[in-house]
Computed example of a mutant assay.
Amino acid sequence: MIVVAGESLIDLVPHGNGEPLPTLLPRLGGGPYNTAVALGRLGARAAFCSRMSTDGFGEALLTGLRDAGVDTGLVARGPEPTTLAVASLGADGSAGYGFYAEGSADRLFELPPRLPDAARAVAFGTCSLVLEPGASAYEALLRREAERGLFTLLDPNIRPGLIPDADAYRARFAGWLPSVSLLKLSEDDARWLGGVPEGPAAVVLTRGDEGMSVRTRTGTEVSVPATQVRVADTIGAGDTVNAALLHGLAARDALSADGMARLDAEGWREVLDFAARAAAVTCSRTGAEPPYAWELRQDD
């Protein structure tokens, strides 16, 4: 089982042609949520660990997880509202966000009991590691599960508008790295952090339409090109990469530091290529709509 821990929210995605106030279409979202849904659609045994609202949006988000085959037994519920993220789309389909998160349900996440024995990996990222008081609980979960030997993936997916003290966040981020097996960064993340850090067993860097690369602690370096596609928007693309990386590593029995060390350059190339193809499907659709396994099988 691969557990994804973090927020779910509703993306409000603009729809229209240049109107001053475009129609905003609600889409299920949140970085960790998208990763969990993508894992389920790819056929992985996945679970979501979070706190979700009992409002209508929360019910829709929970249904989305179940429809993807994601276990929701680690989801707590609360009456507070669901976080909203208003997306703004660039000419190239890239997305920026404004968040309405004050007093929302996911911010009140509390450290759960030990994860199930079936858990092999746990993934973290985005708003959940920034917004207190939940951020401290997610951080405690990261450290606890890494200490007991679970494989951990971190995708900070940095949203500068949510970070009141950049230096404090960078210091906190550095403190997470000893507990991280696989770090996934976008080029924007790396620039904001001041470079690609050392520490995790492997670091994957995504470069948008220029593809992605991996650098491992054992010295393996591999790059693959992006899969060319007509881009509707990039919402959820990085989250799909997270899921595809985890799924690809699990298929090669490499969900451990030792397992990744045994993976040769060709193995990493296959994993990265799978992730690039999966992300391309997501980019071809409006909102975070990751692919199903059958959509990628024809290329395997």
Rank of each mutant, 00 (worst) to 15 (best):
E132I: 12
E132A: 15
G134W: 04
G134R: 11
A135Y: 02
A137M: 11
E139H: 14
L142Q: 03
L142A: 12
R143F: 10
A146V: 04
G149Q: 11
G149R: 06
L153A: 12
D155I: 08
N157W: 03
I158V: 15
R159I: 08
R159M: 04
P160Q: 08
G161R: 14
G161H: 05
I163W: 00
P164M: 08
P164A: 14
A166G: 04
A166W: 01
Y169G: 14
R170P: 11
A171G: 11
A171C: 03
R172S: 12
F173T: 09
F173C: 11
A174D: 13
L177G: 08
L177T: 10
S179Q: 01
L182R: 03
L182V: 09
K184R: 14
E187R: 15
D189Q: 13
A190C: 13
R191F: 06
W192Y: 03
G194V: 05
G195Y: 00
G195V: 06
P197Q: 03
E198D: 14
G199I: 00
G199D: 02
G199K: 01
A201T: 15
A202D: 04
V204E: 02
V204M: 00
V204K: 06
L205R: 13
R207D: 06
R207A: 15
G208S: 05
G208L: 06
G208Q: 07
D209S: 14
E210Y: 08
G211V: 07
V214D: 09
V214P: 09
V214I: 12
R215W: 02
R215Q: 14
R215N: 01
G219Y: 10
T220V: 15
V222F: 00
S223F: 05
P225T: 09
R230H: 10
R230E: 15
R230P: 01
A232D: 08
D233R: 12
I235T: 12
I235W: 14
G236Q: 12
A237H: 05
G238A: 01
G238C: 09
D239R: 03
D239L: 01
D239A: 08
T240G: 12
V241W: 00
V241Q: 04
N242W: 02
A243V: 10
A244N: 09
L245N: 10
L246V: 12
H247V: 00
H247C: 01
A250P: 10
A250T: 13
R252Y: 08
R252H: 03
A254N: 02
S256K: 04
S256L: 01
A257L: 06
